[in-house]
Design a binder for these strands. Structure first.
Length: 419
RNA sequence: GUGAAUGUAGCUCAGUUGGUUAGAGCACCAGGCUGUGGCCCUGGGGGUCGGGGGUUCGAGUCCCCUCAUUCACCCCA
């Protein structure tokens, strides 16, 4: 016997039978809500050519630089397990020429893979429900995807989540702000933490949301991103806020909110749940008008979000919103003595044909053990077949809740059992 | 990638300054009730003490390495 390591790979999760029902519920809500907003599902390959993410997500991002599962296949192609879906979706829409007829509204529920140090709410394989509106430049689209996320979360019973909103500017104003910020930060370099000193070159906007108090003190004196927004970007931000207010969605403008992927422009937002600790952002998104162009296509405005389902489940659990376990069968078929096995099996199939969910005793245990099993499965009924009943063409039908039982003709069983 | 904590039965956990055969509750199986679940009583099965190496007469306990989980950072959903 080979000595196989039974441990799952680091940062992965088995979703066991006890957990699949809640996944079905969450995924079902995602399908319903997305479709109620007119979005249609898209599925892309688990792996893509590496360039899709290099150019789409950005060469200098952590995701591309050190977190991609990259490998060479037997044909010498460099492939990558997708670390996110937006760049892949852009590639797919472009390849199928679907963007010639905007708007294109799509959603996905897909796994993503990142080589990270795992902790709760951060896995190497994780699932995102994502939504994208392509070919829509106006602020109503931004508000729409935020509203969609809100509808989804409230359908699951969540309240008390915080929407944070910011604008990163566009090709016109972002470089101006970035330059002003870098100049400012360099003049205060020795007041910043080590991480932030590195960020000045790598990703200066990140300094804005550093948690170190001394860095925050520096940032407070520096140039404010919103002051550098061009007129168009300002108007866009106000347009998003006006629409959100009209929808009754509460949000907070947060000038320090920065998203790590290169493709974002203008609107960025996060929806978070504080009790989750460090990995508290459940949903993150924004506008990425420049993404398609960076993949070699024609410019196409787009806005969307990604919502981490594992983190969402943690939130639901913390809020006590996981539904109680439901009965998995309607009736359990018990029988006495191995010679009655085939007849019990015939009865079980008779009931299944009538649409009932049936489990039959598989281990030939005592009646006591069989009833215990039926109870454990929350079966509504137990059908008991013993030699005495078999000889007369009847079976005992026992209601597990009331303990009432009666002998009934076998052909009447399908009619007498209810869900 | 950086820093720290934890790892004993399916689950939650005890286990003294290193000292016989590693325990409890829950769960599981059986019997009490020879064909009736829940409550109760009795009994039973189950453990490479995460893995490997070392110190020692002797290691669950001490040391090193390794794997995994958790927490924080980086980053992100």
């Amino acid at each position: 016997m080979a000595n196989v390591d039974l441990q799952r790979p680091r940062g992965t999760q088995d979703i066991l039978p006890a957990e699949t029902p809640i996944w079905h519920r969450v995924e079902g809500a995602a399908h319903r809500v997305a479709q109620s907003y007119g979005y249609r599902e898209i599925r892309t390959p688990v792996f893509e050519h590496a360039e899709v993410f290099r150019h789409g997500v950005g060469d200098a991002t952590d995701i591309v630089e050190k977190e991609m599962y990259e490998f060479e296949d037997r044909g010498g192609r460099t492939l990558v397990l997708r670390p996110e879906s937006t760049a892949a979706v852009a590639r797919a829409l472009q390849q199928a020429s679907l963007l010639s007829e905007p708007p294109v509204r799509v959603y996905y529920i897909q796994s993503h893979f990142r080589y990270e140090r795992p902790q709760s709410g951060r896995l190497r394989q994780h699932t995102q429900f994502g939504v994208e509106a392509w070919g829509v430049p106006g602020p109503l689209a931004d508000a729409e995807v935020i509203a969609l996320a809100g509808s989804f979360l409230s359908e699951l019973g969540l309240t008390g989540l915080v929407v944070r909103l910011n604008s990163l500017g566009c090709d016109v104003c972002r470089p101006r702000y970035r330059e002003a910020l870098v100049t400012f930060l360099q003049s205060h370099r020795d007041e910043l933490c080590g991480d932030c000193q590195r960020r000045i070159e790598r990703n200066p906007l990140r300094v804005l949301d550093c948690k170190v108090p001394s860095c925050q003190a520096v940032v407070r004196q520096g140039p404010k991103p919103l002051e550098y927004l061009c007129a168009d970007c300002q108007q866009h931000l106000i347009g998003v806020e006006t629409a959100l207010s009209a929808l009754g969605i509460t949000f907070a403008r947060d000038g320090s909110l920065v998203r790590g992927l290169d493709y974002y422009s203008r609107t960025v937002f996060e929806i978070g749940y504080e009790k989750l600790g460090a990995q508290s952002t459940v949903c993150g998104g924004g506008r990425y008008d420049g993404l398609l162009q960076s993949l070699g296509g024609k410019p196409q405005p787009a806005v969307g979000f990604g919502l981490g389902l594992e983190r969402l489940l943690l939130t639901l659990e913390a809020e006590g919103l996981l539904p109680p376990a439901e009965a998995t069968i309607d009736a359990f078929v018990a029988y006495l003595g191995p010679e009655l096995g085939p007849e019990a099996m015939r009865i079980a199939n008779l009931l299944r044909s009538a649409g009932h969910r049936i489990e039959m005793e598989a281990l030939g245990r005592s009646l006591k053990a069989q009833l215990r099993r039926a109870q454990k499965l929350s079966a509504t009924y137990t059908v008991i077949l013993g030699p005495q009943e078999f000889a007369r063409g009847v079976a005992v039908l026992r209601n597990m809740e009331t303990s009432a039982q009666a002998e009934v003709p076998i052909q009447d069983l399908p009619r007498l059992i209810e869900h």
